[in-house]
């Protein structure tokens, strides 16, 4: 296959037995990693190695599912950045060609109050699910699929709603935020629905319920540093946070 000599790397990986144990970094060496491998494939190779050598800590636990940048499961703080050194991609879309031979790569789990570490590189992100359950939906009667053009929607609104809907709930925003704030996530979900006629009906209730849940779960207050949008794999804009603030204010003035 490739004539390139593979990469020899040192991996500094966070190992933690469970939610209550104290974790620590462990160093591992991996050799001859193809530059064409994805980052997660490289971790798979490390895990095979750990299984084959009967490593006392066992394979490294990490989240992943689709491996094509759509599910939001893969996380990881790689060399000090959410989803690694590249912009606008998830960890599963990161390739080893972004690293140099002989490099030491630091791999950490998300570290934020709202996302406790469960094991190694895996964190509990169910807080985001709870926020969604609080109001991130539209109540519609089931039935036949309505005609696509039955409700006209201005192109600009549709585009803006689509941009917000790109959020995959990976948690990079809260993981990067110095305030442990989930506002980029919540604002994307509120925006996506508030912009469309189907979502407007419950907009006020939704904004209040989702913000209340976010506060209750202990996420921080956004101070507009903008780090979240720079690390968001889907480049969700902080302009949605302004919309969330507007929606929340409107909802509160109404009652």
């Amino acid at each position: 296959m490739s004539e390139n000599k593979g990469l020899n790397l040192t991996l500094k990986v966070w190992r933690q037995k469970d939610r209550h144990s104290k974790g620590q970094f462990k160093e591992y060496k991996v050799e001859n990693i193809s530059t064409e491998a994805s980052f997660l494939e490289m971790v798979d190779i490390l895990n095979e190695q750990l299984i084959n050598t009967n490593d006392p800590d066992g394979p490294v636990a990490f989240d992943h599912d689709c491996r094509e940048g759509i599910c939001g499961m893969c996380s990881l703080f790689i060399n000090g950045r959410a989803h690694g050194p590249d912009d606008a991609i998830t960890t599963c879309q990161l390739h080893m060609r972004k690293f140099k031979d002989g490099e030491t790569i630091t791999i950490e789990p998300w570290r934020s109050g709202g996302f406790p570490v469960i094991k190694d590189l895996m964190v509990d992100r169910s807080a985001y699910d709870k926020i969604m359950q609080a109001g991130g939906f539209v109540s519609v009667s089931t039935g036949g699929v309505p005609d696509a053009n039955a409700i006209p929607i201005p192109k600009a609104d549709a585009d803006e709603a689509m941009d917000a809907a790109a959020c995959i709930g990976c948690g990079a925003c809260a993981a990067t935020c110095k305030n442990g704030s989930a506002m980029l996530f919540v604002s994307a979900k509120v925006s996506q629905l508030a912009l469309l006629p189907q979502g407007k009906v419950e907009a006020a209730k939704r904004a209040k319920a989702m913000v209340a849940k976010m506060d209750e779960l202990g996420f921080g207050n956004c101070t507009n540093t903008g780090a979240c949008e720079l690390e968001c794999p889907k480049q969700v804009s902080i302009s949605h946070i302004a919309r969330l603030n507007r929606e929340f204010l409107k909802a509160n003035i109404k009652d």
Partner: peptide, 20 residues
């Protein structure tokens, strides 16, 4: 409140994009 929300565990290294 924000410090509390951030949690007690800190990243070993964090390279925020320079635009922040």
């Amino acid at each position: 409140q924000n410090r509390k929300a951030r949690g007690t565990d800190r990243y070993d290294s964090q390279n925020l994009p320079k635009e922040v």
